[in-house]
Structure formats: structure tokens, C-alpha cells
Simulated assay, not measured.
Amino acid sequence: MWGGRTGALSRVWGLWPTGVLGRKPLSCNAASLEGNNSPHCWNCGGPGGPLRGDGFFCPQCSALQPPDPTRDHFSLMDCNRSFRVDTVKLQHRYQQLQRLVHPDFFSQRSQTERDFSEKHSTLVNDAYKTLLAPLSRGLYLVS
């Protein structure tokens, strides 16, 4: 399933999805769990409900779920909805999320998961770039 460099890097970083034997959770707050509005897993058909980790993975089969494109940048990046943002924390969160959903880590998975990974990664990049720069952060807040 997770072999080679991908498995080794994920084990080193300790960012496997929660609930799978030997995997550690990625820390998040309640706002981070509101990412996926799909009632059932696309892969196993398992029931919806709170998803593990940051709401990216099915609690039954650990398959990456489709991203919620309406998810707020602040909740995705685990920040308060405010103009003042801790950029060190933001950078750390960006790195955590990319280690979790970056397409490089899904090269051996199904085409569906590779597509979802690409979309998640794009949303994380957009959120990070938007919240990092004061001007774009302010514009995002007023929009």
C-alpha cells in the first residue's frame, strides 16, 4: 500500500491519518473537521459523519475524500478569522497539510485519490498564499 520513499517519509513525519494502526493524528481543531460534506465515502460507501484527521480521510477505509471547495481558508489553515495571523504557525500548518495531501504521496493510489490529492493540495496552496500576504488576507476578509 504505502511503500518506498512515500511510506518512509510519512512514517518519519508521523502524519498518517488517524485510526489506522500505527498512524498518528495530525493535530487540528474543531473548525478543521468541517471540510467534507459528503454523506458517504466514495470508495467504501461507509457512513459519513466526522472524518479523521483534518476531514480528508474516510474513517472506514482511509481513502482520501473529495475536498470541499467552499471551505474557509482560515479554518483550513487552523487560524482565527482575523487580519492578524501568526505567519510561523501558518507556515507550519501549510507544511503539515502538504505532507498529508500532496500528490507525490498518492502516486501509488487510485486515479480518484490522485485527483482528490491534487485538488486538496491546490486549495492548501491557495489558502496559504492568500493568508500569508497582508494585502490578499485583508481582501479575503472583506470579500
Rank of each mutant, 00 (worst) to 15 (best):
E113Y: 11
P134G: 10
S38I: 01
L100C: 04
P50I: 03
T70M: 06
C61Y: 02
G4P: 00
R93S: 01
L15P: 00
H92S: 11
C28G: 14
M1Q: 11
L76I: 13
L21N: 09
F105V: 01
D104Y: 15
V20F: 15
D126N: 10
G22Q: 10
V124P: 00
T122E: 02
D68R: 15
S143M: 02
Q95I: 07
C44Y: 06
S27I: 07
L132H: 14
F74Q: 09
L135H: 14
D86Q: 12
L33K: 14
Q91T: 14
R71F: 09
C41E: 01
D78A: 11
V124I: 06
Q91P: 01
R11Y: 10
P25H: 13
P59W: 09
Q60K: 13
H102P: 00
L139S: 07
Q60R: 11
F83H: 07
F116K: 01
K24F: 12
P39M: 04
D86C: 12
G35L: 03
D78R: 11
S10F: 01
L26F: 10
R93I: 03
G48S: 15
P69S: 12
L33P: 00
Q96Y: 00
C58P: 07
S117Q: 03
V124T: 00
W13H: 08
G45I: 04
R81N: 05
G45L: 08
P134Y: 03
V88S: 10
S107C: 09
G49H: 08
S10V: 13
W13G: 01
P66V: 08
W2Q: 06
C61S: 05
P103G: 02
R23N: 15
E113I: 11
L21K: 15
Q60P: 01
P103M: 05
V88L: 14
E34A: 08
G35C: 09
C44W: 13
L51I: 07
R52N: 09
L100M: 14
Q65Y: 06
L64R: 06
C58M: 04
R52P: 00
S107D: 03
S143H: 08
W13M: 12
G48I: 13
R137M: 10
A30K: 10
D126T: 07
L64Q: 04
V124H: 00
Q60W: 05
G46D: 11
W42G: 06
S117E: 01
W42E: 10
